[in-house]
């Protein structure tokens, strides 16, 4: 890849990141950071190639370290991001049909107030 082509890729990717991430609401910033963390785990691919073409014992050792670290980055980032996102539910999803029954009581005249579920939320099943 020529340096100039790469420079264009760098520039366009930076803008893409800025625009795409700018659209993410504050409420999702922690999963976003974790998700972005997962995405740079693509370093695993580089680590694999590095190990695959390592020759001396030292190179192989560092290569193995790179692959282990990168896998931790990828898989850890994925597991925690999915765990967090699985918990984000709207009141409609939480209510599971019960929400409508209490809507009258909860409405209170403010259109901004969502329907209220009257039952305790279903266990997320993901609590440590």
């Amino acid at each position: 890849m020529s340096g100039w082509t790469a420079l264009y890729i760098f520039m366009l990717a930076a803008f893409t990141g800025y625009v795409v991430i700018g659209a993410v609401p504050v409420i999702l910033h922690t999963p976003l950071m974790s998700g972005a963390n997962f995405v740079h785990g693509i370093v695993l691919v580089g680590a694999m190639v590095t190990l695959g073409f390592a020759h001396t014992t030292l190179e192989v050792t560092i290569g193995v370290i790179a692959v282990v670290l990168a896998t931790l980055n990828v898989h850890g980032g994925f597991v925690v991001t999915v765990r967090m996102l699985a918990m984000f539910k709207s009141s409609r999803e939480r209510g599971a049909g019960k929400g409508d029954a209490t809507a009258g009581a909860a409405g209170g005249g403010d259109a901004g107030q969502p329907d209220a579920p009257s039952t305790p939320p279903a266990a997320s099943g993901d609590r440590p």
Binding site: I9, A14, T16, V39, G46
Partner: peptide, 19 residues
């Protein structure tokens, strides 16, 4: 020489800078 690493890394770099 891996464009996927460049793109993913830069996207995260920009995102992290913004956050």
């Amino acid at each position: 020489g891996n464009p996927a690493m460049i793109i993913a890394g830069m996207v995260v770099g920009a995102a992290g800078t913004m956050l």
